[in-house]
């Protein structure tokens, strides 16, 4: 942690994360409004998250019989906290809030917390469909996490460092997306999967009446859904320092490049979610184990050979 952003950035980080999440939700709402032929426009779209937040804030909490309140509420709260802690290693321009020497491992550890969180929420309400949703996420977790881990590690391997700023510095000449396209694509897919976004939203999908979130209302639903959006934003934003050169680019300042690239990745993932229906879990699990994991290992091997050729290690 030789140099990092000044201390006030710690306070600004949650604000920034919420603002970016707000913009993403508004973008999603705008697409929904356009598809429905309803009132569209920037103002209407920006109002949607605010209105929904206000509605959930004044809403009643739903109480179920013999609920495990402790696990349910802790699980919900873990999502936004994990998103925030994960976002701490994201470079805003050149520097992140916390430039940890094991930044990418830290990021992955925070993402994995979502795994426990969804199960705890699903368990907490003592409702069959919610529990089904929670178990769905756990059952698929390894099929999501292993390709994700290999994709992240490939970027770290290319830079010969686990520090996020080193990974960005290593891409000054060539973005990692060029030399590790497989890892990039797998990262984007598994980032959506790790935050259970469509087409991987089986844990909270409609066929089980909302799955893990089935019994949530009021503040509980706000924390769960908001935390899920925030984690999604953090996971998408991490693709920029890992594969898209971070703040590198001509003319514009670094922070603006980060913003532009992050917006592009978010737009792509939101678009993907709206275009592709929920994938069948058994098919994706098989595909992940049989195709994605070998593909990412082969990708890591190629990158390792490139690094050795360069005279690294």
């Amino acid at each position: 942690m030789a140099d990092a952003l000044p201390l006030w950035s710690v306070v600004l980080l949650p604000v920034l994360l919420v603002v970016v999440t707000w913009a993403t939700v508004a973008f999603d709402a705008a697409l929904t409004a356009r598809a429905a032929g309803g009132p569209s426009g920037v103002g209407a779209a920006l109002a949607v998250p605010v209105r929904e937040t206000a509605r959930l804030l004044v809403g009643q909490r739903r109480r179920t019989v013999a609920a495990d309140v402790v696990l349910g509420r802790v699980g919900g709260a873990v999502l936004p906290v994990a998103a925030l802690l994960a976002a701490a290693v994201l470079p805003w321009g050149r520097l992140p809030v916390a430039d940890l020497d094991v930044g990418v491992v830290w990021f992955n550890a925070m993402e994995v917390l979502a795994w426990a969180a969804v199960w705890m929420v699903g368990w907490g309400s003592n409702s069959a469909l919610a529990l089904v949703g929670g178990y769905r996420f756990v059952a698929q977790g390894l099929a999501y996490e292993l390709p994700h881990m290999f994709a992240i590690i490939t970027a770290a391997l290319g830079a010969e460092s686990l520090r996020v700023t080193d990974i960005v510095d290593a891409q000054q000449d060539l973005w990692f997306v060029v030399i590790m396209p497989v890892a990039f694509v797998v990262y984007l897919l598994s980032a959506a999967a790790m935050t259970f976004w469509g087409p991987f939203d089986a844990p909270v999908s409609r066929d089980v009446a909302g799955g893990a979130a089935a019994e949530l209302s009021g503040i509980d639903r706000l924390v769960f859904a908001g935390g899920r959006w925030m984690l999604f934003v953090a996971a998408a934003a991490m693709a920029v320092p890992l594969f898209l050169g971070g703040g590198g680019g001509p003319w514009l300042p670094a922070w603006l490049w980060v913003a532009v690239k992050t917006a592009a990745v978010l737009a792509l993932l939101v678009w993907l979610r709206r275009k592709v229906p929920t994938l069948r879990m058994d098919r994706w699990t098989e595909f992940a184990w049989v195709v994605l994991i070998p593909a990412t290992i082969a990708q890591a091997l190629v990158v390792a050979i490139v690094v050795l050729q360069r005279g690294g290690m």
């Binding site: 940890l100 020497d101 094991v102 491992v105 830290w106 992955n108 550890a109 994995v112 917390l113 795994w115 426990a116 199960w119 178990y135 756990v138 977790g141 390894l142 996490e145 686990l162």
Partner: peptide, 21 residues
């Protein structure tokens, strides 16, 4: 020991969720 500490977090979360099942 930053790497060991963070890896314990990562592995234990995965492990205990599987354990829970």
């Amino acid at each position: 020991l930053s790497y060991l500490g963070v890896v314990i977090v990562l592995m234990m979360v995965i492990e205990m969720v599987i354990m829970a099942v």
